[in-house]
Amino acid sequence: MAALPDREKLLRNFSRCANWEEKYLYIIELGQRLALPDKDKYRPENLIQGCQSQVWIDMRLDADGLMQLKGDSDAAIVKGLIAIVFILFDRMMPRDIVEFDVRQWFEKMALTSHLTPSRSQGLEAMIRAIRTKALQLTSGA
Rank of each mutant, 00 (worst) to 15 (best):
L66V: 14
G65A: 04
L69S: 11
P44W: 08
K70W: 08
N46H: 15
K70D: 10
A76F: 10
V55G: 04
W56G: 06
Q49F: 02
I48T: 10
Q49I: 13
L47V: 00
R60I: 00
I57E: 03
G65Y: 02
C51V: 02
L66T: 14
D72W: 05
G71Y: 00
Q52G: 03
V55L: 04
L47E: 15
M59C: 12
S53M: 01
D74N: 15
L66Y: 15
A63E: 14
L69C: 11
Q49M: 05
N46D: 07
L47G: 06
M67L: 15
D72G: 02
A63L: 03
M59H: 03
D74M: 02
R43G: 03
Q52S: 11
D64P: 01
A75I: 00
D58W: 09
N46Q: 09
D62C: 10
G65I: 08
W56I: 05
L61G: 12
G50A: 06
N46C: 13
Q49C: 02
I57Y: 06
Q68L: 14
Q49K: 15
D74K: 05
C51W: 05
A76I: 00
G71C: 07
N46Y: 13
Q54E: 10
S73V: 01
S73A: 12
G71R: 02
I57K: 09
M59A: 12
R60H: 09
G50Q: 05
D74C: 06
D74L: 01
R43K: 11
Q49Y: 03
A63R: 08
G65H: 08
G71I: 06
I48E: 09
I57R: 09
K70C: 12
L66M: 12
G65C: 04
A76E: 10
L66K: 15
D58N: 13
G50H: 05
G71F: 01
D64Y: 03
N46W: 14
D64L: 09
D72M: 02
A63P: 00
G65Q: 07
R60W: 01
S73H: 02
D74E: 09
A63S: 14
Q52L: 14
R43M: 14
A63C: 02
G71H: 05
A75P: 04
